[in-house]
Design a protein around this nucleic acid. Sequence first.
DNA 1: TATACATATGAACATATAATCATACGTGAG
DNA 2: CTCACGTATGATTATATGTTCATATGTATA
Lengths: 141, 141
Amino acid sequence: MAGNTEESKNRLSESTTQSSDIPVCEILCVHTDLIESVRKTLIPGGQAHHLADLFKTLGDPTRVRIMDALAKNEFCVCDLAELLGLSQSATSHQLRVLRSDNLVKYRREGKMVYYSLDDDHVMALYREGLEHISEGRKETY
Amino acid sequence: MAGNTEESKNRLSESTTQSSDIPVCEILCVHTDLIESVRKTLIPGGQAHHLADLFKTLGDPTRVRIMDALAKNEFCVCDLAELLGLSQSATSHQLRVLRSDNLVKYRREGKMVYYSLDDDHVMALYREGLEHISEGRKETY
DNA sequence: TATACATATGAACATATAATCATACGTGAG
DNA sequence: CTCACGTATGATTATATGTTCATATGTATA
């Protein structure tokens, strides 16, 4: 847990050399020292982009349902399409997206291709999300 | 997202034998019994939608960076904008999205509003994602 | 080889969405 | 009250993306 680093209360930093190119919060509200300290520990932009891509991949109802099905059993594309009421094309397109983020793996058996979750780690990620929405009391659909 | 037809096509297929209205995989590749068995355990459509919304919220580089900053310390809107090089408006908009999924909480102090992660559970979800991209050897940005 | 079937993929279209701009809201000071 | 400032939000616009349709690829069989 990269919990709260102390020094959380150093308001009114000296900041004589304030970054004047920022149009809002000229001087008062910017906690300069804290910001500069945390800035060094921030996730690099590329990594943030990469992580966002992972979550974005999971951020579609169809893909969630595919993940949910694969969390219970491996399926060929045709089975998934039937199970979820999707077209073969849509199913294949979505599996491609899931593959690109290493969320699912596949094996070929004759003409059929069987998909499954890539590893237990993916399952853990999926379940974390499930737990979160189970806790919250957001409006039901 | 886009053409996601409401409620899909035909959930809860009526017949236990074979749904002949699916144009692909007439008979051969569909493992009917397995499908019917797993179908009962699938996540409901509404819940899938809800879970997708959660992941979608995390699926943006800017929001990932906000989450990363808040994982290290609480910040007011102005600080976040400065720290991440965003406009005040963009920051506020994104915080609103994060709020709507209960990913962040806030407290008012005078004119300023301080944001932080909603709970440790959110942190766990975020870290699961981080671990996944650390394992994989996807192309670096 | 030719045919059938399961899957993959490119193009096009419609929808979703993040940033910007302008402006409204809320709080504290005078 | 009025003003200043930090924050929130509606409208607009450019970009991203999921589905469908048509077609290509890959595999097995006759």
